[in-house]
Write a protein that binds this DNA or RNA. Sequence first.
DNA 1: CGTTCAATTATACAGGTGTATAACAGGATG
DNA 2: CATCCTGTTATACACCTGTATAATTGAACG
Lengths: 217, 217
Amino acid sequence: MVEDRRPYRRESQEQRREALINSALHLLAQGGPQAATVRAIAERANISPGLIRHYFDSKDDLTRAAYAALMDRMTVESLAATEGISDDPAAQLAAFVAVSLRPPVMDGDRVRLWAGFLHHVRRDPRMHDVHKATYLGYRDRLQALIQALPGRSDPAKARALAIACNAVIDGLWLEGGTLPDSFAAGEIEQIGLTAISAILDIPLPTHTPTSNPPEVS
Amino acid sequence: MVEDRRPYRRESQEQRREALINSALHLLAQGGPQAATVRAIAERANISPGLIRHYFDSKDDLTRAAYAALMDRMTVESLAATEGISDDPAAQLAAFVAVSLRPPVMDGDRVRLWAGFLHHVRRDPRMHDVHKATYLGYRDRLQALIQALPGRSDPAKARALAIACNAVIDGLWLEGGTLPDSFAAGEIEQIGLTAISAILDIPLPTHTPTSNPPEVS
DNA sequence: CGTTCAATTATACAGGTGTATAACAGGATG
DNA sequence: CATCCTGTTATACACCTGTATAATTGAACG
């Protein structure tokens, strides 16, 4: 009876929850829903399977938390795109668009991750709310940038333009992410800026420099 | 030992395969991957679970067939959109766009169905090929319609324009499908036509009548 | 250095999954 | 009406799923 249990360290609730969320997101991105089992998630987070339900009420609860975390990160990432850019509204808009249309935002794994959550979003009202809030948050930011352009301050018109620009970005993000080999380097970004320039009827810098790359691991 | 087995009728391979594919697609659309179990698919197709593997080598094989069938139907649906329309290239283009941005094409279930396949598309090379061919087929049709416009015959430019227009459609299809309550009736279609009109720098009929509605069940 | 508490592990469980196989029966053929 | 083929059903199986619970142990505290 020389029980040789796995040795372990006690960690804070915050660390454990974050590790589990990251593990779940990674597995969902790479292998889809069927790969993100409780056991696989736990293994990747270096804990035993049972511990998951010590930090989350159920697997669905973890899924919900993971989705919320993902949406939160994507929102933060988007909003950060216009920081450190000149005050020129057109330049800010161009930067905002460009960031969404190159890695790491435009990425196959992220598209699939997002897509995999769609069914959960339908079933779970809380996740639906997060989905809606994230989309509207992104679009509202776009609308604000558009209204800052000269002569584009009408909210109703800006709303329609924001929806259209958002669609261009989403569509290109989707296609560039799922068919990366079908486009030349930078082509998606270029096409996106040109299209949005046409939609808004305003000149945009077609070449936007890669922003601050302070590689966070 | 009065075996009371379920009575049955023998059906053609074609009918059974189609019934199974429809059953699988319906379940995948409504409940996602986890709902489309072998038993649920069989029950909805009114056969016993074991019969599935008499018509398909495996569940993955059925999934593959279902995806191919779905993509085929969507392609046919798209190509039919311009039939019966006047010879005016702009009118044809408008009809093509409008059909994609209203039901039954723009539909939440269909978006989720499409999204659920993304992980399979990544893993299975055959499904990846179908995905790519479907996307390129749609886009090529768009490009042909664009090149038919007056003064838009340059293939390279038309390609970029087609990618942009495709993105607008895909993005709006996505958003209109997943957040139907966030848009007024016909708003998505209107925005799409306006945006594509701006991208192509050409006037488009902003109101496109609903085409032939020969309700097939 | 003992005590104590909760974080953590291990194990068990009921149910579901895709698959394999044997028994049955519909219906065409003679 | 009897025969035969094969489409079809039923059952069994090994494995995996999320969850519940008891046993263990890290580490903070007195």
